[in-house]
Simulated scan of single mutants.
Amino acid sequence: MTISLNDIAERAGVSVKTVSGALHGGSARMSDDTRLRIREIAEELGYVTNFAARSMRQGWMPLIGVIADELVTSPFATGIIGGLDSGARASDMAVFAMTLSGRRTVASVLEEMHRFRPRAVAYAAMYHKRVELPAEFAETVGVMINCREANDRVTSLVPDEAGAALEMTNYLLNAGRRNIAYINLPGLLASELREIGFRQALDQGGFNGANATVLPAVNRAIYSDRAQSLVHSHVQQLMSVPQRPDAILCGNDRVAMEVYAALRRCGATIPDDVAVASFDNQVEIASRLDPPLTTMALPHRAMGRKAAQILLAEDRAPVEVKKIPFRLVERLSV
C-alpha cells in the first residue's frame, strides 16, 4: 500500500502542509521535536517520496544546482561540493554540478540546469575572485561560493584571506620569529588580501610592515604553477645576506615545497634555522614534507555547508559578503 502525506498527517495529528515541510523542506514552521516525530512516523509507515508528483506540486525538484566555474579542476572541489552535499542531504536534497568553461556561458548553463527544475542554484569558483554576473541572473543565483559577485548583488561566501595571513604571521611572531619574508602569488585577489594581513600583523607586532620583504613566486604577472619559478633564486638571495630571514611565509603549499628544497641547498635546517609556513593545507603535500608543514587550511567545506544553509533557508536573508575563517594546522615546520 502506498503511504501518502495524508496518512502521516493523520497519525501525527498535524496538517499535510506541516508534514510536507518536515519531509521536503517546505515553508511550514514547526519545532524540531515536531519535525523529528513526523520523520519517525514516515519511516515507520514506509513512506517513499514521489519525486515526480512532488516536482509538479512544488514547481521544483529536491536538487541544488551548482554552476562550476572551473571548479572540477581544483584539488579543493571535493571540499566545496562535499560540504554543500552534506548540508543538502540533511534536508533530503541532492547536488548536481554543471561546468562553466569555454563557450558555455552563465546563460547557457542556467538554461540547461533549469530543465532539471532545481530548488536553488549556487555559483562556485576554483579560486577566490570577483565574478560579474549578468544582471538578469543575479536573482537566479542564490549564493556565490569561493568568489564574490562584482556588484555585490548576490550573497557571497569567501575565505578570510587577510585574517588568515594575520593569524599565521602572529603565530610566527609568537614563536619568536622576527625577520619574516613572504614569497607571495602575484596577480591573485587572495594574495593581495593576504599581503594586507601580513603587513598588518607586522605593524601590530611593532615591526615595519611597509618595509617587509614580499617577493613573487613566479616571473609572470599572474601566478600559475606552470610559470617559471623564482623561488630557488629568491631563497638563495635571502640566505646570502647578513640579515637572513628566520621564517619564510609561502603563498601556497607548492611554493613551500620549493622553499624546503632551496633551503636545504643552502645548508639551512627547518625549523631550527628557518621556519616555513604556508596557506592551503594540501594534505598530500603538507603532511608528507619533512618536517610536516604548518599551514592555513582553506575553509572550502565550511563554505559548502554554509551555502546549503543559505540556499535552503525558508526566508531569503539580505545580500552580504561573508568571510569564512581559515583553520591553522600546526605541524613541525615552525
Score class of each variant (00 low, 15 high):
M1N: 09
I3N: 10
S4P: 05
I8D: 08
R11C: 09
A12Y: 08
T18D: 08
G21C: 05
H24Y: 15
S27R: 10
A28T: 01
A28K: 07
L36E: 15
L36T: 13
E43K: 14
G46V: 02
Y47P: 00
A53N: 04
M56L: 15
M56E: 04
R57S: 14
P62G: 07
G65Q: 02
E70K: 05
V72R: 11
V72A: 13
T78L: 12
G79Q: 11
I81D: 01
L84A: 11
L84D: 04
D85H: 08
S86V: 08
D92R: 10
A97E: 09
T99V: 11
T99R: 15
A107C: 05
S108F: 11
L110R: 04
L110N: 07
R115T: 13
P118C: 09
H128A: 12
K129S: 14
L133G: 04
A135M: 11
E139N: 12
G142M: 00
C147A: 14
L157Q: 05
P159V: 02
D160I: 06
G163E: 01
L166N: 02
M168I: 15
M168T: 09
Y171F: 14
L173T: 08
G176K: 05
R177Q: 06
I180G: 04
A181Y: 10
I183E: 05
L188A: 06
S191P: 00
R194T: 01
A201D: 00
G205M: 11
G206R: 10
F207A: 10
F207Y: 13
F207E: 08
N208F: 12
G209Q: 03
N211K: 15
N211P: 08
A212E: 04
V214N: 02
P216M: 04
R220Y: 01
I222G: 04
Y223T: 02
S229I: 13
P242T: 04
Q243V: 09
D246E: 04
I248A: 03
L249N: 06
C250L: 06
R254M: 15
V255R: 06
M257K: 13
C266Q: 09
P271Q: 08
D273R: 09
A275H: 10
V276I: 14
D280P: 01
P291H: 11
P291Y: 08
P292V: 09
T294C: 01
M296D: 10
L298K: 03
H300S: 11
H300F: 14
R305K: 15
R305M: 14
A308V: 07
Q309N: 15
Q309A: 13
I310E: 03
L312F: 11
E320V: 00
P325N: 01
L328S: 06
S333I: 06
S333N: 03
